[in-house]
């Protein structure tokens, strides 16, 4: 249980950074940490104590592999996370060219 809990603490650190920081790059770093934590949580869910990695050997009988389905899910999620990071950084670079700053409190031309 402590392992799950530490993973969720990592998620909370990322969430705090994404929500409370002023610099755009810090916000992006926060979202990145959140995504890492969720992917790790998937793998922790699937782990079997004294398990083997899910690669079969041709001559051995395999009885205790770790769960391969969360690993496939996490592979897809890692790639989607990379795509989101690419998108956010590209948007941030373009915003810097237009506004001249990375401060999110100053990037506020849209009034209520």
């Amino acid at each position: 249980m402590i392992t799950y809990f530490l993973c969720l603490v990592l998620f909370s650190i990322g969430l705090f950074c994404a929500v409370r920081k002023r610099n755009i790059i810090k916000i992006i770093i926060g979202i990145g940490i959140m995504e890492y934590a969720v992917n790790l949580f998937f793998i922790l869910i699937g782990y079997r104590a004294q398990g083997r990695s899910p690669i079969l050997a041709r001559d051995q009988a395999i009885t205790n592999i770790v769960d391969p389905l969360p690993q496939a899910v996490a592979l897809t999620a890692i790639v989607i996370g990379l795509a989101v990071m690419l998108m956010l950084v590209a948007l941030a670079i373009r915003i810097y060219e237009r506004y001249g700053t990375f401060d999110i409190t100053k990037i506020n031309r849209l009034k209520e």
Binding site: N39, I43, Y47, S53, Q71, L75, I78, L82, L86
Partner: peptide
């Protein structure tokens, strides 16, 4: 956690993310 495919993929993704973050 016995997930070698993921370890490789994570390294690659990590390097790419670092490159683009440092650029920004």
């Amino acid at each position: 956690m016995k997930a070698p495919d993921l370890a490789i993929m994570q390294l690659v993704v990590e390097i790419l993310s670092l490159i683009i973050l440092i650029r920004a």
